[in-house]
Write a protein that binds this DNA or RNA. Structure first.
Lengths: 343, 343
DNA sequence: GTTAGCACTCAATCCATTAGAGTGCTAACA
DNA sequence: TGTTAGCACTCTAATGGATTGAGTGCTAAC
């Protein structure tokens, strides 16, 4: 059977009503609610068709209809029209405190959760392809060197390196020159064993110190490769009782608290990039098992130099997709702006 | 009325039973449960006395008894005396790397939550009056200077400062010397307007750059004095339905997620130090309003140089106090070990 | 002082009934 | 042929009365 215009209209009305109320939608409601001027009986017939086609289902016999995953999918794909309102307030919230990346991303998660009333998730950008801009060694005290590593999007990492004996100033200067000569402009993958070996050779008597330095650098790199994930508003999920039993919700909250499976989710979103950067996972489509009863909407943002991150919303299947999508789009845009300014 | 030995025994039996089951305890249960060989009627009489004395209450007429806050308090005090395994004094050296510490403390929170099935809370050690240890200016590119500021607990802060024109190497060197001469070892209070003025004067044409640096310094010191708090196992709270309505629990979870009032709690524990380092807050005694229906057990640990931190458990009033207390004691001991090894 | 016994209380559970929201089907209608 | 009115039917949720049973308080007897 083909889905015609009227069926589409009815389906849309049903889903949209269900999104608001969370209750199964009856034929009479639709008969009154839409401007189709059809009786409830006719709507019922259409509903039967739509159920047959797999877009709707009844939670139990002779109850109203609720959308299936397939129904949501159609709704999301075909009927999404963006709402651009409500964005201004959010922008001001965002700009209040933007000094450090970490606190900014946390802030983003908070704003997102607060504005949508769902759970929010933000991943820090991954810098696999970024290049080293600057390395600086300096002596903090007799037992410690400080290595400051600046990546070209101005992400800065610090490492404290224990040393056996104090170094002279000009020695430090020499090492700094050496390090910057070899490593400036190198991407993090470029720093391989061979290069390390070369540098160590040239470091002469400080090869040993260099050992500690490289260890610090690799640690820093490793740390940079790790995806930080911030979540917020997990407790919002308690507001949607239709997420089934308490156990299911508890599992979900635990997953959010412990970041279980969130790595996979982030990976998935980064690799499975759509045209718009927006992706919607409905019910069983989600890559995380504890979220099978939810929907996830994600957007990827991109800094210069190919560093990408994900922001997303986890909510009930009956989430306000329009609002969430437009919120995410605006926020990624905003993030882009901010990062550009910081450069 | 005086509380005699038998009453105490009965009270303990009641509380201990209630801790297990979470259900009001009846006289018959106690009659069988204890080795007192008393009939339920006698127990009932005693129970009435205990209720009159404020240790027990009935959730409704003709139900069994449950402990009041006062009852719990007696129980806990009594228990502490009996167990009396003394806390060894915790002396540890300053931690080498603060960044490692973060993940360790997170781990501690996780272990704590997992083992007790309550919510866990860990605060990073607090250094009052952090002092500036080292400051380094360097040039990242033509438009930016990088100021690296190391505070004496090895908290490192970076600040990028935009500049109009590139600076010469020896100029930078001069500024570095200037800054370190004046500021090394200074605490936040030391860095007053007068000092800033002096330095700015000596900086000559770079007074403007100095502005940004001072800002970075104050931020860094503030950050060092800020208490990081890690939580885990918040979702465990969903397992205890007697925490009243869902709203109350939601509030609690939100407080844990957003760290609302946790600062106050940590402050309280640090100032209100008991002999053993263990503190128990029951019901209304808790400093955080969203936890009035819970109990909180905390332990403080102490690093060298007066840096103190808190680890704690938040759970229902009927928590397994013995287990929690001994777990906390063990963990603080464990922390002690770890810090010593890292010396 | 302790206990047995009994009347009483009250939340929880069960059960039957009802209300009502909604469907499916059929027959009539335009 | 598509639409609609009408009606029987289904199933959940809500209601409320009866019942259960754990547990108390009191009294009288040991």
């Amino acid at each position: 059977m083909e889905i015609d215009d009227r069926k589409l209209k009815i389906l849309k009305a049903i889903i949209s009503n269900y999104l608001e109320t969370g209750e199964p939608v009856g034929s009479r409601t639709i008969s009154k609610f839409t401007d189709l001027n059809l009786s409830s009986a006719t709507i019922r017939n259409e509903m039967q068709d739509l159920e047959e086609m797999g877009f709707l289902k009844q939670p139990y016999t002779s109850a109203g209809r609720i959308p299936t995953d397939k129904g949501y999918r159609l709704y999301v794909d075909q009927m999404m029209v963006e709402k651009d309102s409500e964005m201004e307030e959010m922008k001001t919230q965002l700009l209040e405190r933007v000094d450090k990346m970490e606190s900014m991303l946390k802030q983003v998660a908070k704003v997102l959760a607060y504005n949508t009333n769902y759970a929010a998730l933000v991943s820090a950008p991954q810098y696999q392809n970024s290049k080293l801009k600057f390395i600086q060694l300096s002596q903090v005290d007799d037992n410690q060197m400080l290595a400051v590593i600046v990546v070209d999007n101005n992400v800065i990492r610090n490492k404290l390196i224990p040393i056996d004996r104090p170094m002279e100033n000009d020695e430090i200067l020499k090492l700094n020159v050496l390090l910057n000569t070899f490593l400036q402009g190198a991407s993090l993958q470029d720093i391989n064993l061979e290069m390390i070996h070369t540098i160590k050779n040239q470091a002469g008597e400080y090869a040993e110190v260099m050992e500690g330095i490289f260890q610090g650098i690799t640690e820093a790199i490793h740390e940079a490769d790790e995806v930080e994930i911030y979540t917020n508003g997990a407790t919002n999920m308690l507001k949607y009782p239709e997420l089934g039993n308490v156990e299911q919700t508890t599992k979900l909250l635990e997953a959010l608290e412990d970041r279980q499976g969130l790595d996979e989710l982030i990976d998935e979103t980064l690799h499975n990039d759509s045209d718009t950067g927006i992706q919607v996972y409905i019910g069983e489509e989600t890559p995380v098992s504890s979220m099978k009863d939810c929907s996830i909407v994600t957007a990827t943002y991109e800094l210069a130099e190919g560093a990408k991150g994900t922001i997303g919303i986890i909510g009930p299947k009956r989430m306000d997709y329009q609002k969430v999508v437009s919120t995410l789009k605006n926020l990624t845009g905003e993030l882009d702006e901010i990062f550009k300014k910081k450069e």
